[in-house]
Design a protein around this nucleic acid. Structure first.
Lengths: 217, 217
DNA sequence: AATAATAGTTAAGAATTAGTTAAGATTTAT
DNA sequence: ATAAATCTTAACTAATTCTTAACTATTATT
């Protein structure tokens, strides 16, 4: 799920943006000035920023320069080419003028996510699952997983605090592999735990009797 | 040096674009219709396409869908949001309306090159892939690749530390070559590795079991 | 406490995938 | 039209992963 930070001091526009984004399945964060924006960026893994240029404290142009690695779309009433050029050269990825077309904005947001191949990694306590289908980091030590082990652990880590049923896991790993049964699943879980034990004494995979497995809190 | 393909049938606008690009240090390629554009894309490793929508043979929208991996900026007289949205969702990266501001266009071109690391000459450790569709430099020694080998290696080097799936690679090399299957892919990978072994003892291409390949860290 | 059901471990070998090679087919260039 | 380069096919080997199956341990039910 993509996290988008809205930086806009005009409450009505802010609400409209928020509404549009939520309707389209994005997670939104709200900043009404520059310093709040910077705080949120520090604390959250933001994937995209929608930025108004005229803010009460610092101006948008300065914010652009301070942000690295997160794509920015400017949404501004300033229509002059010079404003656009400066923002784009400073680091913004796109510039949309107010009033904006809702669907065009959504399309331009999709462009950013399409081009921006980020690594979406799952982190939970000591565990850090890379999205390379094979690497689990435990306290910065590499553990190599097989594809099936990776898929199981990914499913579990995507659903921390929830129980993942045996059938769900079986469906998951049976996509490529039709012969897989509960016995196999047991062995895979056992193998994951064995690999984990080398680097941590915590058993993160907890069995839920008769149902399935979940990540232990 | 970045290679930009201009696809525009109006000669006066075409010349203006060409002039602007040349003045700013870009190498330009010229197409006045869709099929010429496709031929140039097949032959040259183009880094960016400036595309007019109304072409004499095929329309720009169809061209967008055929092009993968090369960023496209639409330059069109069509100003409606629907046109913009369709192009952006089909795969275009940006949409500029005529008449365009020269410096804004240049800024938007720079955004494309800034965001798409893929478009710079690809360097990774000892490897240096030129954008001529055939040359890999390993520690300043030339290795001549076939076009398919080049495409595979380019895709991998554009995604270092990420996994490139077998299907992605197959899609990539099947554009010109429809019969290609996994067996072929295996052979191509093997051939690239063999060529590399002449100049380095590192095996840069790592298999990700059951998924695809990635560049080894 | 005894029994049944589920969970967990281990090791072997079956099955799958990766990697190499060479020959013949296809495409491209001369 | 011929030669050269490139690609696919196919057979084979090597490596990895998965399932099976036997056994042990734990939990729930009576």
């Amino acid at each position: 799920m993509q996290k988008i930070l809205i930086v806009e001091d005009d409450y009505s526009i802010h609400d409209i943006l928020k509404e549009i984004l939520k309707m389209n399945g994005y997670i939104t964060y709200d900043a009404y000035n520059g310093s709040d924006a910077l705080n949120i960026i520090r604390q959250e893994d933001i994937n995209l920023i929608l930025l108004d240029l005229m803010l009460p404290d610092i101006n948008g142009e300065d914010l652009i320069k301070k942000v690295k690695d997160i794509p920015i779309i400017i949404i501004s009433a300033k229509v002059s080419s010079n404003d656009k050029i400066n923002c784009l050269l400073d680091g913004a990825n796109d510039y949309v003028t107010k009033p904006f077309d809702k669907d065009e904005l959504l399309a331009r947001i999709k462009v950013q996510f399409r081009n921006n191949k980020q690594n979406y990694e799952l982190k939970y306590k000591e565990l850090h699952l890379l999205n390379d289908y094979q690497t689990l980091m435990i306290n910065n030590e590499k553990v190599k997983l097989t594809k099936t082990e990776y898929l199981i652990l990914k499913e579990l880590l995507q659903n921390t605090k929830r129980v993942v049923t045996k059938n769900m896991l079986l469906d998951l790993i049976s996509i490529d592999n039709l012969d897989c049964d509960e016995n196999s699943l047991k062995v895979h879980i056992s193998n994951i735990r064995k690999k984990m034990r080398k680097y941590t004494s915590n058993n993160y995979i907890e069995a839920v009797w008769g149902i399935g497995f979940k990540i232990k809190e």
